[in-house]
Structures are given as C-alpha cells and as structure tokens.
Design a protein around this nucleic acid. Structure first.
Lengths: 339, 339
DNA sequence: CTGAAAGCGCTTACAG
DNA sequence: CTGAAAGCGCTTACAG
C-alpha cells in the first residue's frame, strides 16, 4: 500500500506551489488564479486521487469538521438509530462527521469521554437523552457549542430539540373525536415529566375545545409499562361509565390496554378505540389489530438539532426550544364510536 | 472562554522546554528526566488543565486514535446500539474514539463517507451489517485495516465476527429435548443464508445426537415475519402428528407461532413449547407467556471486533472467523413435553 | 539530564 | 497572477 499523496505531490505534478494547490482546491475567495493553472491543478489532484488530510487542515485552521454525538443510553432503545441517522444526514450535508459516545449515564465516564472528544477538537456537541426529560449540562461541556436532543436544559440559553408532545396529544385525541368518541380515557404514567405533562395538557385542550366534560375519573395514573397500562385500562373498563376510547401515554401502556380489553371480551376497535404514543415499531405493528399511534419524530429531531448546531458554529445565537411535530400513524385500533 | 493551554504554556510554567513536557507526559520510553523535573511538569499540566491536541499529535505521529464504525442500516434495528456500545467499550479501553457512519446501504454514499473517514485519518474500520450475511468490502476500504461485524467476507483474509448460530440452535433444541420433547418442529425462513443454514444444522445435529427422527415434515419454510411464522406453525399444528415443541428461526416468526397456537386453542407452554432466536427484547418480553429465546450477543460481538481491530493495528495478523456464543434467555414458553 | 531544531500536512497573509 | 514563508501544536531524533 503506497502512502496517500500530499499537497506537495499535487503541486509538483502540476508545476505550481503547494499554496496554489490549496487556493485552487478550496476555491479560496478573493484569490485570482489563471484558468489554465486551475485546470492543471485539478487534473493533477484527480490523477493522484488527492484528498487533503483533515487533521492537518483542522490544526491549521483551528477548526475541525467533526461533531460529537453524546448520548446516555443508546444501547437499550430502538430510537437512538433514528436520532443519529438524522443528525448524521444534516452533518454530512455540511461536511461534518460524527464522533459517537455513549455514556450509559455514568458521569465519570461521560466526563472522560467529553475530554477525549475535546482533545479531538470537535467543533460542537449534540447531547442526546433517550426520552424527553430535564438535564443539566455537565461542566466539561462549558465553552463548547452544544445542542440538546430530546431533553430540556435545567437552565441557560441552550438550544434544545424536543418532540411537540402537546401537538401530538391533540392530534391523537382529535383523531378519536373525529370518530365520534365523547368519553375518552387517558391512561398515563404515574410520574410527572415534560412528556406526560404536555400530553395531558393536549388531551385536556381537545376535550375543552369540543365542549366535552373533563371527568377526572377518565384519567388514570399507573406505572408506564404494559402491566400498568393493563391495570389502568381495567379501572376504566370496569367503571360505571366506561370510555369508548382510550388514549395511552405510550405504546407499552397501550399493550396493557389491549390485554385488559381482551380479558373482558371488549373488541378493538369495535367496542373500544385505542391510540398510543411513540410508535415503538416492533410493538405497534405487531399487535392485532395494529396500533394507531403518534410517532416520535426522531430522525427529524436529529436533523433539526444538527442544523441548529451547525448554525451556531457559523455564529448564530442559540434559539432555545425547537419543537418537532409528531405525525399520526394509522393502523387498525381506532374506529367509529359505538352507539 | 479562554483558549485551551498548549504544551508551550505548560513548559513555560514548569520552566522547561516543550519537548521535556512531551517526554514526561507521554512517559516516553528510554528518556531520562530528573524526578523533580517530572514533578514540576506534572504539576504545571495539572494546574493548567492541559490535555494534548489530538489533531496535532496525530499529524505528527501519523497515527490517529479514531476508529470508523460503518454500518448499513443502523436506523431500523434495535440491535445497532449494542454493537456500537460493545465496540466503543473496547475502543475506549485503548484510548480510541469511534467515528460513526451509517450508509443506509447506499453505495455512492458509502464511498463518499469512507473517503471522508480516511481524510480524518481513522486508524481502522469496523464494518457492520445488521444481520448475519455475506458481503464484499468496497474498494475504498483497500489498505485500511478492517474487521467485519455480523457478516462474512465473500473472499479474503479479513477478520469477521459473527454469532455462533449453530451453537445457539443446538442450545435451543437441547433446551427442548431436556424437557422431554421428542417431536420438535423447526419453522424457518424461506431463503437460505448463513444464519438459517447454521441454525438448521444445529437443529439437525441435536436431533441426531439424541437419536430422534429427522422428519422432513417437521421443517417448514416460510417468510421470516410473524405472518410467515403463523402459517408455518399452522401447517405443523394441523398435521397428523403435530410436534410438541417448535423452534422458530427468529422471534418474529415465534410471534406467529403464538398466534397459530392461540387460534387453535393450543396453550403455551402446556400443550406446546416454543423457543425463538434473536431476543428481540420488546417482542420476546412482551408476549404472554414471555418467549424463551436465544440472545444475539451484539455487545460482546462489538467488543470482540474492536479488540481484533486494535490487535491488527498493533501488527497482528487477521484471524478470520470469530464466533461469539449465543446465550439462552429463559422466560415462560418452554415447559415439559405433554404425555 | 535537558533543550533546540525539524517536520507532520496543511492554509493564510504577504511579497513580488 | 503566483510563490516563499510562517505557523497551527505536537513528537522525535539529535546535540550538548
């Protein structure tokens, strides 16, 4: 394997100085080079298969073309890939590569990793969490342009990109209302958090918008897994006035709703409509009937975040909250309200 | 934000030359530096929070400390994270960072990405596919130390790391035999491929080992999704002599087996034991009863691959096939054979 | 035992 | 319009 050509090789072949090669290949603004010289340089570069050494360029320009993608628990979620994919697409568009680090939530390790990333002169960082929550940026990140992905900063001006939870919830409940449902239950996580708070608000908003009673008995708090969803749906279905539709905080809880319905001979969507949130693909598509749900726009979020970061590297100011809309994915679990 | 300290700053503070700082901080072999000088240098570096610029070091030493992680379809599989996580763990241990690129299977894009990676002087590459298959390495990778992850090279000496499919299948079927099952069905993918071939071999191996008849009617080919699994299991369950246990090629097909059983009033595990493959977590844990299955050791595979690559960077020869064992994950779908 | 010099591969003022 | 020089921040022979 012969070594990669350097700029000097191109210069010699073209019969010019290395600086001329640099100017030509970079299309340096305000530099005047004769057309035939340009041509010779280009041909020489092409012939040798020359591609500049990014390390040398980064050292000289004091600006690398890599972005850090730091995440807490990439390993255990099927979403991470989409976030990365989106970020990568936007980064590539601008000639940046992603350096990936997964911290597993370990602070010491995170600090170590960020240090290594900074030694590599990353231009900026995307700091991603695997679900929408509030975080404090670690001090090692100080002074490095950073955009938060799927989380909100505890304080500061940082740009952060999150799903539009409220719009998602509104869309979901509108979907049910449009089918004639008037009593709609909400099966929610036991804990508060940015996601559940906003989804609840969206739910309430739509009920109010349509003049539907906001019966507190229709909102049941439970653990956020399928077992919790099953218990919560059981409470609703066994009540004196059961809802004809249930909006589940997430797809895992929706699985539980399916189970509670099956156990009671309640058919979906004939007797009960169900709509979930997250579009946890392997789950939502495999249920019978398929689960209609709100997709978390991870790929688009990744894109938006990378674009915002790139803009900041070009001198733009942080822009705070960036909401990305959640689209509905219609499968078979929503039907007309039974009369 | 003040700029990062350079080696010269440390040298000035310690009252020595930059070269001495380098020698001390890198513990350069064969260099003799007085203990108190060492001490002063260390203290100065500590005080300034000095960390060497990896770009400059890489340029000078002609050796970067980044590895490329190139994958085809990270976006759509929940496994990718584990692969990356494992690779990262091993890479970090050796002071390397991962540069990630997902090609989406687009060759032109892949070529472009690999070029960019090489411009960044990555020391080597991990080339990952999202399921076990045969690949040809793209020419752009020529001359760059590369290890294949979850795929086998069409030719060449390349090191490649794959799950031990046959051991996994043997373990699965032994699990059933140990529970007294004598008629065991195998619900397999319609297409051939390294994974299904080896799983079939493992299945046959165990039957032979225990002197059980290898009835060809017990092996049913179908599409590899849940619908295929359902049809295949239907064939087995409706046959004159139905099996008491079914080994499914993968968890998706196992879902179908569950459905076929439910549709016929066949109870799992009382009437029928089921064992899957892949441990597609969201699926296998959410079924009722939970699916007993063989886990794909993605994290460990990532680790093994990164370690092998690092070894090659240190001059070791490629080692060809590296098998990583698949452990069984016991949930509730395997029980004693009905009498 | 320590320092001065050269050089990795680029880019960017600055001469001419 | 083009080239020579300096320098980004390191490390590594080589003097002394």
């Amino acid at each position: 394997m012969t070594r990669r050509p350097r700029i000097r090789d191109v210069a010699e072949l073209a019969g010019v100085a290395p600086s001329t090669v640099s100017v030509v290949l970079n299309d340096t603004a305000g530099a005047r080079v004769a057309d035939d010289t340009r041509e010779r340089v280009r041909a020489a570069a092409e012939q040798l298969g020359y591609a500049p050494n990014s390390l040398a360029r980064g050292l000289r320009t004091q600006r690398s073309s890599t972005l850090a993608f730091i995440s807490d628990v990439i390993a255990t979620t099927p979403y991470a890939g989409q976030l990365i994919q989106g970020a990568q697409e936007a980064a590539w568009g601008a000639g940046y590569l992603l350096m990936l680090v997964n911290t597993g939530g370990d602070t010491a390790l995170e600090e170590h990793a960020v240090r290594a990333l900074r030694q590599q002169q990353v231009a900026g960082a995307l700091y991603a969490t695997m679900y929408h929550r509030v975080v404090s940026l670690p001090p090692v990140l100080d002074g490095l342009p950073t955009v938060l992905l799927d989380s909100r900063p505890a304080d500061g001006e940082t740009t952060f990109v999150v799903p539009d939870e409220q719009q998602g919830a509104e869309t979901a409940v509108e979907e049910l209302v449009a089918q004639g449902h008037r009593r709609i239950g909400f099966v929610r996580d036991r804990n508060d958090g940015p996601a559940v708070d906003r989804r609840l608000r969206g739910y309430q908003e739509v009920l109010a918008r349509h003049g539907l009673a906001a019966d507190p008995a229709l909102v049941v708090r439970e653990e956020s897994g399928s077992a919790g969803g099953e218990r919560a749906a059981g409470v609703l279905l066994d009540s004196a006035e059961p809802p004809t539709a249930i909006f589940a905080f997430n797809d895992q809880m929706a699985i539980g709703v399916y189970r509670a319905a099956a156990a009671r001979g309640v058919r979906i969507p004939d007797d009960l409509s169900v709509i979930g949130f997250d579009d946890l693909y392997v789950v939502s598509a495999e249920l019978t009937p398929g689960l209609t749900t709100m997709a978390l726009p991870h790929r688009e979020m990744g894109r938006v975040a990378a674009r915002a970061l790139l803009a900041e590297l070009d001198g733009a100011d942080p822009v705070g909250e960036q909401l990305v809309a959640c689209p509905v994915v219609r499968r078979g679990s929503v039907g007309p309200a039974p009369r």
